[in-house]
Amino acid sequence: MEPLVEIKSLSKRFGPLVAVDDVSFAVDRGEVLGFLGPNGAGKSTTMRMITGFLTPSAGTVTVCGHDVVGEAIQARDRIGYLPEGAPLYADMTAGELLRFVAGVRSLKGAALAKRVDWAVGQLGLEPVLGQQIETLSKGFKRRVGFAQAILHDPDVLILDEPTDGLDPNQKHEVRTLIRDMAADKAIIISTHILEEVDAVCTRAMIIDRGRIVVDCTPGELAARSRHHNAVVLSVGAAPADELRLALEVVQGVAEVEIRSDGATAASCVVIPEAGRAIVSAVSRTLHDKGWEIDELRVESGRLEDVFRDVTRVPGSGVNPG
């Protein structure tokens, strides 16, 4: 059984610019692939080639066994797509737009009404069905875009920044929806929000200057962070210098970062050498010194660290625009 989405040696050039450079990967049913990367890294370009909006310069994309160039219509029948910024016909009402998309997808009569009702229910669009799209809030526009993508219950769902511009509650709802649908679909989402990868993705891929630089689970990604297994602690009244000295000699500690505004109030992050667990040794040291512990927790890792590490241009210290 071949995977639902299979990408082989995919490249896209715009004149001299190489937007996507020899990318290969596959996504199967049950997977939620989080596509990460700086702006201009090639995330949207890759998604546009999967959905057939752009023609690849080289390489192939197969969706449910159909080549997206050679058998474009069959492939697109199986894809639901939310383009970046959720472009929609502003002069239509939300209901008209959904019925239009369902009609183009060859749904008719009772089946059409049933699918539209289902999608409307999933996204909570009932209150705005009769409203013109140009008068909708950003959050509702995004939800209409999401609804048209899932109308036909596609096997493959491509979502380009699905939670961009939503408030925290709406983000939570959309993430819940993605998780609920994940079991029987292959889903690819792109995002700038790293916590989203943790919240919904089973797999994280960082793409930079057109190439895949990381492809692993969110857990593995976090483990690559220097903050993986770091200990965050604050103690009541220990002199900062003394605290640093005491912790730096603990076995396995690589670095101690102290944040304190004076000589005494001390909260600090103890960073371990790669792969070491230091929490018990650290807490033992604190007990031995007799300092009162206000807070003590272990970090699982910071995705921002990894993101910056792998996407930084060497030497310049800034990301490419």
């Binding site: 929609l88 016909y89 997808r105």
Partner: peptide, 14 residues
Amino acid sequence: RSGTIELVMTLPVA
């Protein structure tokens, strides 16, 4: 201009 071409051209249409 509005980007809706991306919506309509990625539907299953020729």
